[in-house]
Each structure stands twice: as structure tokens, then as C-alpha cells.
């Protein structure tokens, strides 16, 4: 394992590697030593008696400390060294007699994974952290790494919570007679790789805005079908426009052709004009428009060979499903 972490960042990842990367591992590659290390380091001088080591370890509650002469790191003294000293009843001896001078240090700009490699391979309990000038800037233990990663994981979670909180109060914070949020997505013809990306983003936006999981699911499914229709059945793809209001969600899918010849037939369950190749991709079951009708409270399909197809969909939100927390209450109070 001596690969540059940057290789992961550059996404040159084999299937097997991708499989093995978890969020924690990602963090080990993302987090810098300086973000997780302990900065206020208790240091000792090589000429101090070992008695002082006992005192420092006991009061600061640590089990090891770097030994410095002036600004220079000369060794590290650990609880094991202290035990050895105690067994010889030699507490008046200077620190330099017991300290370890063969040290492995680590740079503050290194990623956490570098430290993990050293901890695992060399069984060191703590690593002095040096800056670019070779100055001691901190110390790193396995506990520091664990705490750092846990904190980062928690931050990920909190950031999402904050995003949700802010989004939920969006409608409350902005005053107008009728506030709405419009999301627009360009969908490319035959772009199966990104197919569903727009619906995915819309579903996530709705959840952040405080929509119930049930409403988010209904809208997600309907938009996904509309999105796949634009990918499969159009000349040049099309546009999905979603307008979110506290009381309703309106979705429009437009394209510029070729248009649907027989709308009634197109609405029939199981009817599809998809080719065998499309069916082999798992689409063209002839259930798309049926699914949309089932998920939406309102649906209107307009199509002509000249202007293309325009699919209008709406979900009306019940009181308990309203997006933008507090909106109803504020309006009622104002009225």
C-alpha cells in the first residue's frame, strides 16, 4: 500500500478498489493530520529527571510525550520507558537515559491514512507531527484518528441536517403573495448513463424541502418515467421543469418531437413503441404513462407532430404533506 492518495482523488480506481472503499476509508484519504492531531503538546527536556515524566503523565493524563532540546525534537518518552525506570527505582536519572531516539515522525499535511499505515505496520503508539520547517507542531495517537474520523462523519450528517433545515424554511423566509421554486433540467436523447439523474435530484430536493417520503416517492417515480420517455422517445431530448409551491408540485416535460400519434393508445397499459434493444435495457414495458397517471393527482398529455409533446403533471399537497414548514401557519395568522 504505497500508492499516492491522489490516485484515489483522480478516480483511477479499479472495480475491486471501488468495492472496498467505504466512507470511513474515504475520510482517511481526505482528512489531514493537522485536522485530527493534538496541538497542545506537553514536552520534556532530555535533562529533566524521570520523576518529572511521572508527574507530567499523571497530571496531563497522557502515556507518552516528545522530548525537545530548544526547538529540536530529540526523542520520545513513553509509559513503557517510565515503567522500566520505575522497576530500577531510577527516577532521578535524566530523561535522555530512557527516551527512545529512533523515531518516526509524520508531516502535518499528510493524510490520516499515512499515519494508519505506520500505526499498523510499526506498532508505534504515538507519532510526533512536524511542519514543513521540521518544527514539532503536535502529536498524533490512534485515539486522535478515531475521534477525528467520528467528528468528520458527524459533520457530514449535520451538514445534511442544516441543508434540510434551511430548505424547509425557505418558503417561510421569503415573503410574496405566491412563492414558488422552479427547477429546470435538460434531458439529452439516448443519454442512458445520466438517465434518472434529474429525478434523483428532484426527489432529494423535495425531501430537503420537507416533503413527506410518500410524496417524494410519487413525484420521483413520475418524473423518472417522464425523464426516461424524453431519453428514449424523442428526437433531441427535452426539458423537465418542476415548480414547487407549498400547496402543490407541478411538473412539465417538453420535447420537440416526433410527437405521439395516438394518445389514447399510448396511455394503454402494456402498449409501447420501444424497440427490442430498449426493452433489453429494461424499458418499454408500456407502463410509463400508466405509472405517471397513478402517481399524480392531475395529468394531461398534449402532442402533435409539429410541436412535439407536452406532458403536464401535478400533485396537490394535503395539509400534512405541505412543503416549507410553518408556511400554512404563517399565512393563517396573517389572514
Amino acid at each position: 500500500m504505497d500508492q499516492e492518495p491522489s490516485r484515489f482523488k483522480g478516480k483511477i480506481i479499479t472495480d475491486q478498489m471501488a468495492e472496498d472503499i467505504t466512507r470511513v476509508e474515504e475520510l482517511a484519504y481526505d482528512l489531514r493530520i493537522s485536522e485530527v492531531m493534538t496541538r497542545d503538546v506537553a514536552t520534556l527536556s532530555p535533562d529533566q529527571p524521570m520523576r518529572d515524566v511521572l508527574e507530567v503523565f499523571r497530571t496531563v493524563r497522557i502515556s507518552g510525550a516528545p522530548v525537545t532540546r530548544g526547538n529540536e525534537l530529540v526523542g520520545i518518552v513513553s509509559i513503557e520507558d517510565l515503567i522500566q525506570c520505575l522497576s530500577k527505582a531510577d527516577l532521578d536519572a535524566p530523561v535522555k537515559n530512557y527516551m527512545t531516539t529512533q523515531m518516526i515522525t509524520i508531516r502535518d499535511t499528510d493524510t490520516v491514512v499515512e499515519a494508519l499505515k505506520i500505526f499498523v505496520n510499526l506498532r508505534f503508539g504515538r507519532l510526533p507531527v512536524m511542519d514543513e520547517n521540521g518544527q514539532l507542531v503536535g502529536i498524533l495517537t490512534k485515539g486522535d484518528v478515531t475521534r477525528g474520523i467520528l467528528k468528520a462523519l458527524q459533520k457530514d450528517y449535520q451538514e445534511e441536517e442544516v441543508r434540510r433545515y434551511r430548505a424547509r424554511h425557505l418558503f417561510e423566509d421569503i415573503e410574496s403573495d405566491r412563492t414558488s421554486l422552479i427547477l429546470r433540467y435538460n434531458i439529452r436523447h439516448l443519454d442512458f448513463t445520466h438517465g434518472g439523474a434529474a429525478s434523483s435530484q428532484i426527489k432529494r430536493a423535495l425531501i430537503r424541502l420537507g416533503a413527506s417520503p410518500k410524496v417524494a416517492r410519487r413525484v420521483g417515480i413520475a418524473v423518472y418515467e417522464a425523464e426516461m420517455n424524453l431519453i428514449i422517445h424523442t428526437n433531441h431530448g427535452g426539458i423537465i421543469r418542476v415548480e414547487i409551491e407549498p400547496h402543490q408540485i407541478s411538473i412539465d416535460a417538453y420535447d420537440d418531437g416526433p410527437g405521439i400519434k395516438d394518445i389514447e393508445l399510448a396511455m394503454k397499459p402494456g402498449y409501447s413503441t420501444a424497440t427490442e434493444a430498449i426493452r433489453e435495457l429494461g424499458f418499454g414495458a408500456g407502463m410509463g404513462l400508466v405509472n405517471i397517471a397513478r402517481c399524480m393527482d392531475f395529468m394531461k398529455l398534449e402532442s402533435s407532430e409539429e410541436t412535439g409533446t407536452h406532458l403536464k403533471m401535478k400533485v396537490f399537497l394535503k395539509e400534512e404533506d405541505k412543503v416549507g414548514e410553518g408556511y400554512a401557519a404563517t399565512k393563517e395568522a396573517a389572514a
Binding site: 442512458f192 448513463t193 438517465g195 434518472g196 439523474a197 429525478s199 434523483s200 417520503p213 416517492r217 417515480i221 423518472y224 418515467e225 426516461m228 426493452r279 435495457l281 429494461g282 424499458f283 418499454g284 414495458a285 408500456g286 407502463m287 410509463g288 400508466v290 405509472n291 397513478r294
Partner: peptide
Amino acid sequence: DLMSDVLASIQPEAVLLTGLANPQVVRT
């Protein structure tokens, strides 16, 4: 194996068995 069929009928919290492996399976 047909994604619309999945979307049409599946209830939340089910395990989906499928012969497809394209990203659309995850989207669905």
C-alpha cells in the same frame, strides 16, 4: 427486469431481484 414494471407495482422496503445491471436499476 422491466423498470416501469417495478415502479408500477413495488411497495417500499422490498428487495428487488433483477437481471439488469445498468445504473437505471439503482435509479429505479
